[in-house]
Simulated scan of single mutants.
Amino acid sequence: MKLLILDSGHAEYVAGREAPDKSMREWEFNNDMQYKIKNLAEKHGITVFLTNPYPQQKDEMGLTKRAEIANGYWALKQKPPALFFSIHANAYKNEFNEARGTETYIASNASQNSKNAAKYVQESVYKMIKSIDTNAKDRGVKVADFTVIYKANMPSILAEYAFYTNKEDLKILKENRDQLAEATIQGICKYFGIEYIPTEPEKPDPPIDPDPPVEQPKLYENCVVYSGQVDENIAQILSWDLKDYVVVDLSVYKEGLGKNIYVVGAACGKLKGDYNFYGKDRWETLDMVMNYIKK
């Protein structure tokens, strides 16, 4: 069993901690990231526990309490190989400025495993951000005794993905969270010695083929229209002396099949229009057809 304990920094009711233009609040970024990372970690067979799963509409949770929750769960699971990972975004002053970059923290009491995890995550996340913005800054792995990582009993790190008080960094924090989570899990997999499996990009829906062009019927010089088997025989007799013709049943006849339209027998009363009608019924039509072809 590999255990990843995710600690989403802050809660909704914490004052401040938002971009100068109020377009992003840190707690929302941290919370969104913890679930993206959780989903990817579980796909790699890593067990995930959240210390702060529901930060919406809540006040800040004490930092010591976060560490105690993590320690208690780790002990409950018989202290398997684990990593405590606290998720944050950074800030400098209250207005947009030039301070930017990615940094990962370990405590002064950090184990070698903590140092390894921080190195792997820092390298992977920075590489990803650098691929988006060539001016991205690598602030490296730093040491600071933040309570959550200092008091965690298992290997622990705290990531500051980028500065939401920097316009370029803020854009990445808002628009590239899937890539940030993917880069994070790469580092975590390396730490646990697990083969990283890249997430396949979603395939777009195939384009909807437009309606095929309607095939236009050939225009014949003559078209003979009938209705029923007996009339079909008469229609065929009529066609003997015609050139460039087509003989069709009334049910499939379409306007525009011929320049001259001959309507035979029973079809005479059903197809109205300015046509070359032959007879009031099939017998009169037959007589007229025989005269027409001089038989």
Score class of each variant (00 low, 15 high):
G101N: 07
I129C: 05
Y126I: 07
V214E: 10
P81V: 00
A11Y: 03
K218L: 12
I129M: 12
D169G: 01
E160G: 05
Y245F: 12
S108F: 09
E195L: 03
I132W: 05
I237W: 01
A117D: 04
M288R: 13
D32W: 02
W27A: 04
N260G: 05
K36Q: 05
I46F: 01
K58W: 01
L271S: 13
P204V: 11
D211H: 08
A266T: 13
K36G: 03
S239R: 07
V263G: 03
A235C: 08
D21E: 10
N90Y: 05
K58S: 09
M61Y: 13
Y105N: 01
K38L: 08
R17I: 10
A235N: 08
G16L: 06
A70R: 07
D7R: 02
W27Y: 15
I194V: 15
Y73C: 10
Q57W: 03
R25I: 10
Y245V: 01
F96R: 02
P217T: 05
L170N: 06
S131C: 07
Y73M: 05
Q236H: 15
V289G: 03
F277P: 06
Y92R: 12
E284P: 11
V121H: 03
A91F: 06
V148P: 11
G269S: 07
S124T: 11
A144I: 15
G258I: 03
W74D: 08
F96V: 14
F146Y: 15
T199L: 13
K79P: 07
F49L: 00
P81M: 11
S114P: 07
T102M: 06
F29W: 09
L4E: 11
K119T: 14
Y275N: 02
A99M: 04
T147R: 06
I46C: 11
Q78R: 08
Y220P: 10
K259L: 05
R17L: 14
A181V: 02
K167E: 09
D133M: 07
H44K: 09
